[in-house]
Amino acid sequence: MEKLYCQGCGIMIQTENQTELGYAPKSALDRDPILCQRCFRLKHYNQVQSVAISDEEFLDLISQIGEASGLVVHLVDIFDVSGSLIKSLPRLVGHNPIILVGNKLDLLPKSTNQRKLKQWLRSSAKSMGIDVKDVFLISSAKGHGIDELAEAIDDYRAQKDVYVVGTTNVGKSTFINRLIKRSTGENNVITTSYFPGTTLGFIEIPLDETTALIDTPGIVNKQQMVHYVSDHDLKLITPNKEIKPRVYQLNSEQTLFFGGLARLDFVKGEKQSFVCYFANALPIHRTKTANADELYRNHKGKLLSPPDQETLSQLPAFTEATFRLTEEKTDIVFPGLGWVTINRPGTTVRAYNPKGVSASLRKALI
């Protein structure tokens, strides 16, 4: 078969895998111009479709930003910051400035301290070697914070291109669609969305006559919980509305299971409240630590659910980490799931996560 290329983004057309770059249905091959499905939806429906690429492909693609001049907008998931921060980003984008955008603000409890959240996002990025110019909190789904961010982008970009980067499942396509809607109006379809010489895999959405907002494919980061759970389980662990805190009064040597996807042992300390912030649909089960191993062996995927059978077939074994808390009000963060707030210093806990998805500590956000 003759090689065909999308006249929108320049990617080679393929008709086999709808979730990969360059997909077009066979019926589209007779059209003029030939567009991949991603470019077709942008041109005719004003929508950006999310696609994913491997780590290696992403590195090759994004490294081209370092040879250009523009602003990098790095979108991360507030519920999975460690999994959605791209550690190699500074090396790839060169001296181009980076602003960090935390998405899914609407799902946090209204009592969340947004100033502390911004500080934590900035320090998390810094710990990975990412120096950011500014930090913003938004909701792609609800539109919260979009106007403020859009104005800041205009200031920071200094009449240069804007590159939007992020891992899969951070809401990048929804975010870009919000920006398109804001700049063009809901019913005003973009008719000129493609510049000559567009880099393979990028989609360029004009900001003015000389610069563009550039969408990049999402990177698949295997340190994200999302890649180990079934579609059914993903719906259970992903909040779809404001999460409600669940409070457990625990004595030492008691354990909380978050479905069967994570576990927290109260090893040592005074009786106290453990405040849990997870998707409202994710069951939490309390038991004695002495019984926890047997309970997990016999009931994961049943009483301790999710995981379902599909998730069980791909979920890595648990690894554990012990933390002795030295400050008042500390969060134990379970990436991709949520967090537990513990109020008293001097408390010792042990966290269990699937291997590669590590728990961490931060100052409490609430």
Rank of each mutant, 00 (worst) to 15 (best):
L89G: 01
G145M: 05
S111R: 11
A262C: 09
L264N: 02
R362H: 10
Y228N: 04
G94W: 14
C36R: 04
S82R: 12
V247A: 09
V349L: 04
I78L: 15
I203T: 15
E242F: 01
G145L: 14
I366K: 11
V93A: 02
S63L: 02
K116Q: 13
I203S: 14
F79P: 05
S139D: 07
V333Q: 01
Y194Q: 13
I243H: 07
I176T: 02
S252M: 13
Q249A: 05
T198P: 06
D155I: 14
V170Y: 08
S88I: 12
R362W: 12
Q47N: 14
S127H: 13
L213P: 05
G8T: 00
K142T: 08
S124P: 12
V275I: 14
T319H: 14
L361W: 11
A24R: 00
S82P: 06
V189Y: 12
Q159R: 14
Q14G: 01
S173F: 02
R31E: 14
K160A: 11
E151Y: 10
L121Y: 10
V132R: 10
N96E: 08
R324K: 13
N280H: 09
I146H: 08
A290N: 13
A279N: 07
V81K: 07
L75D: 02
A52Y: 04
E204K: 14
N169D: 14
D154K: 12
L200Y: 12
P306G: 01
P316I: 05
G218K: 03
L61M: 11
V73R: 01
R31Y: 12
Q37I: 13
L325F: 03
M225F: 15
P239A: 00
A141H: 12
E151H: 13
T191Y: 10
I205T: 05
I11L: 03
K271A: 13
S193M: 15
N187E: 15
S124D: 05
G70E: 00
N103D: 10
F257I: 04
S123P: 03
G185Q: 10
S230F: 13
V72G: 06
K268E: 15
V226C: 12
G336I: 04
K235C: 09
D30F: 13
G346M: 11
D77E: 05
T210D: 15
L75R: 04
K363L: 07
L4Q: 00
A150Y: 10
A279V: 04
G346T: 06
R157L: 12
W120M: 15
L303P: 01
